[in-house]
Design a protein around this nucleic acid. Structure first.
Lengths: 150, 150
DNA sequence: GTCGCAAGTGAAAACGAATGTCATGTTCAC
DNA sequence: GTGAACATGACATTCGTTTTCACTTGCGAC
């Protein structure tokens, strides 16, 4: 939100020493920066628009591709909103967790529900299912959006 | 595709005084029949293909439209698979529940998790979110598909 | 510094699910 | 039986996402 301090973030000094596969390109760097700045889940097209509005010259294809790589790498979380669009967010932890997401501004809160994991594993096992995975997403209206009547 | 008990609920002779908009058309009848026969979640296109393979003359548009109406009516449940496609299934109960779904054959088991509802409501409230909704889906491999190596 | 090449990029085209359009067909009330 | 409202479906359109492929760029070798 209030991020007026944007001096020169696109400085590929040497901070790219993460587990990311991405090579040190200006686009990848800028994308990482935007992901770090945005507080909630955003669509690829949103992120692309944000990059463009910051003056970055980057193609939509690259945004999709990078997000795909980052997602496979576990560096960003993905979820699908009600309309089927895929939303992305860099999460603080790479451990398994879920989100409470605002359906109007995309802001999200990470929640950890050990109970849910157990429940999911149990009911799947009871049904005889193996190789089990689950998705749990909670959508709602965040306090700010509720206050503004969104 | 074992369809042992196939009652005839889709007989909107005069029982159409419900909230259902579906008029007694041949297509709606056939669609209801297919939904009753299919054991798991299937895509609209699957259902359309199944109808066609049964010799029904029905358009894809109609399938989508009917499924939409049935879904809004609570007569079928919907979920999105990993690829983003929407899947449909007629469920036994119209009460709120979740599913364990086989990711290769679409077969599903209904599970009721009161604990999940409470958990979702609680974590959302703790985050200050209102107007809360949630999705919980469990994907896995059903015993049959596991046995066949799918 | 410059050369070379693989990896990255991106505009445009392709793709696919889903929805809109509208002329035609069908059902139900009368 | 008749008519009008509603359902149908072939086709067009929308929209998010992926693929294609020619071009650019980072980076190690020289």
């Amino acid at each position: 939100m209030t991020s007026p301090s944007t001096p020169s973030p696109t400085r590929p000094t040497s901070a790219a020493g993460r587990g990311t596969r991405v090579r040190g390109t200006r686009q990848a760097e800028a994308l990482g920066q935007v992901l770090a700045d945005l507080p909630g889940f955003r669509s690829a097209q949103d992120i692309h628009a944000e990059l463009r509005s910051r003056g970055e010259r980057i193609g939509l294809t690259t945004v999709y591709r990078q997000l795909q790589v980052l997602s496979a790498d576990g560096a960003v979380d993905t979820l699908r909103d009600e309309s089927g669009e895929t939303l992305y967010r860099r999460c603080a932890t790479s451990a398994h967790h879920h989100h409470v997401t605002c359906r109007s501004c995309g802001r999200s809160v990470e929640v950890e529900g050990r109970a849910i994991e157990h429940w999911a594993a149990r009911v799947a096992a009871e049904a005889g299912f193996t190789d089990v995975d689950h998705t749990v997403e909670i959508f709602g209206r965040c306090p700010d959006c509720a206050a503004e009547g969104h």
